[in-house]
Amino acid sequence: MDRPFFTVRYSRCAVVLIAVLAISAALDTVAWYHTINRLEATTQTAMATARENGWTIEATPLRKGGWPFGAWVELDRLETAHATRTAAPYDAGWAGEHIRLGGSWIHLLRSGLPLSLTGHQAARLVLDGNILTALASNLQIRLRNPGNLTFSVPQLELALSGRWPDRQFSLLSLSGRLIRFPEAQAGATRLGINVNAAKVTGFPLPYGFASDLQNAHLAIALTAPPTSAGLSLLDATSYGRLLLQDASASPATTSPDNRIILAGPLNLPDYDGTLTLTVTRWHELAAHLLERPEIQSRLSPDLQEMLRKLLQKTSIPSGMREQPLSLSVPVINGRMTPDAQVTSALISQHFQSP
């Protein structure tokens, strides 16, 4: 007896479905092998280049994974170290719990190669006697090309020590971009950095102060020097000037419109130059700062009273827009010396609004 029509029809659909799944699996497998070979080659090249540049690297053997939903290679317990040498005068180290290069097909099809650093990550840099320690987890990096990467991390903890005063602070919801032009001509940008942080806790300030900030932004460009003597990313002699395009933030307990902005060029490697400090809605900010106990404890009662009277004298009439306050801040050997300029502005009453 002949089979019913619907049975034949469903049998044909099943055959077509099986054929489609088989072809998809075969294509997925081919794509997986091709991508894995590329990721392995990228990882081995990066590690070989790092060893040539003086880094020692220890890690578990490279593992492959991701099929059928993606492709990646992984390393566990990565430990790297770099000792000071003439071409790269710094000590550095990095310990990573888990590193993955690659991801799902959706992430791989987007622009850039994803690099995930999950688990505990710790880095240490010693440069000219200054020590910087960084702790993070779940750091996400996207490599668009060897000289262009973007990154994001929920929280980055930083600690300063050595010649620097011992200070610790954290950056929350940090993201940014780094661009390199190793072959840049003299005067052109060799390294560019753009970073944003939603919040900064315990940011160190002069005279032992610390402050919480919000909506922090940093944009700098480092230009190539007249001669190509230095080629290390962290060596100041590798650059001619540091162009501080924008270093700005708002105090955490004030309006986001209260912005403290620092910008200007510095000559390298001496870090000499003049920066411009701009404060918007400075009158409100100054009144807020005078109410902070840690600042009151450093000022005599007479000085506090004088500053309050100065703020009253320079108060902004209702309906008028307050003009930003700008000061020139000389920088010598990386140290800002604003006291003389601030005193001069106070004496000459530059704080008065037009």
Rank of each mutant, 00 (worst) to 15 (best):
L289N: 05
L231K: 01
L307D: 13
A48G: 03
A134Y: 06
I179W: 04
L174S: 02
N37K: 08
S170F: 02
P354L: 08
S255I: 01
P225I: 00
S300L: 14
P68N: 09
R308I: 14
F351V: 05
L75Y: 15
Q245S: 02
A216V: 01
L75P: 12
T60R: 09
Q121K: 09
Q168V: 06
S173A: 11
L117S: 06
N148T: 12
G93P: 11
R241A: 02
L135F: 13
T280P: 06
W94H: 12
N267Q: 11
R167F: 07
G70W: 04
L21I: 14
D270V: 05
F181P: 00
R281M: 04
L234R: 02
S297K: 12
F151A: 08
T253S: 04
N333T: 15
A26G: 14
P146A: 07
F209A: 07
E52M: 10
A25V: 12
R259Q: 08
M336V: 11
N148C: 02
K309R: 15
L171T: 03
P225A: 01
H98R: 07
S255V: 02
L191E: 02
P251W: 00
V331W: 04
L78T: 12
L117W: 07
R51K: 13
T343L: 14
S318W: 13
I193V: 10
L277T: 10
A221F: 01
T223M: 00
V279H: 03
